[in-house]
Write a protein that binds this DNA or RNA. Structure first.
Length: 210
DNA sequence: AAGTCATACAACCGCCGGAAT
DNA sequence: TATTCCGGCGGTTGTATGACT
């Protein structure tokens, strides 16, 4: 098929649970070797970029989703003040969070607040943070100080998953349930010595919605 | 209840830098 | 050295959902 035809037939938009499952299964079995070439053998009509984005931002084990903790928000504010829009650098300081997630959080929650507070950046954030119920959705609300702390387990970057030679390699097929995939992912992390309870929670969270 | 507006966030696009050839 | 390819980054858009009138 010509490249232009391939481009035309590529899926766009939201990922389906089935596509997620295929990507997880493929990466669990073969690891990450070349995004642009992985999609086809994985059975996905997606661009390599799309696959990479989906994995990095949502499927990768160890990711946290949901509300940012007070510590995380403070870290974002602090680092953004120092670094500007260097989201990937900021994300590297917030294990389990992605640059895209932080960027979205900034754009929807924090930047508007900055705009409304026509004060020097360094002061505006400190004084605009509220710790009670928000008066409007645009107001920054920090979690209580006793909220669970952010995990600092290292989770960023590509992971090394077992290759086909491992015992896990032959265990995945198209009819695999997510419970089974979850188990295999956990085994993958155990095998590489990076599995822990936080990974477990993250894997659960990732697979739950599927 | 229906229509409109605002918000949140998943995903895409274009660009850039580094590695490979 | 020049070219090509790939991965990564930041900006932006599209859409689903909730709030409001």
């Amino acid at each position: 098929m010509a490249k232009s035809d391939e481009k035309r037939t590529l899926n766009k938009g939201p990922w389906s649970p089935e596509e997620d499952r295929k990507l997880i299964a493929y990466i669990t079995r073969y690891g990450i070797w070349n995004w642009s070439q992985m999609a086809k053998p994985a059975g996905l009509q997606r661009s390599g970029k799309s696959c990479r984005l989906r994995w990095v931002n949502y499927l990768r084990p160890g990711l946290k989703h949901g509300n940012f903790t007070r510590e995380e928000v403070e870290t974002i504010l602090d680092l953004h003040q120092k670094l500007g829009n260097r989201w990937s650098v900021i994300a590297s300081r917030l294990p389990g969070r992605t640059d895209n997630e932080i960027k979205n959080y900034w754009n929807t929650h924090l930047s508007r607040r900055l705009k409304h507070n026509l004060m020097p950046k360094s002061q505006s954030f400190q004084t605009s943070i509220v710790e009670t119920e928000p008066k409007s959705s645009s107001e920054i609300v920090l979690p209580p100080a006793n909220a669970p702390e952010a995990s600092f387990a290292e989770t960023s970057g590509a992971i090394q998953l077992p290759l086909p030679s491992s015992n896990l390699a032959g265990e995945i097929d198209q009819s695999q349930t997510f419970e089974e995939l979850q188990s295999i992912l956990e085994q993958s992390f155990t095998a590489q010595g990076s599995y822990n309870a936080e990974n477990s929670e993250a894997i659960n969270a990732e697979l739950e919605f599927l």
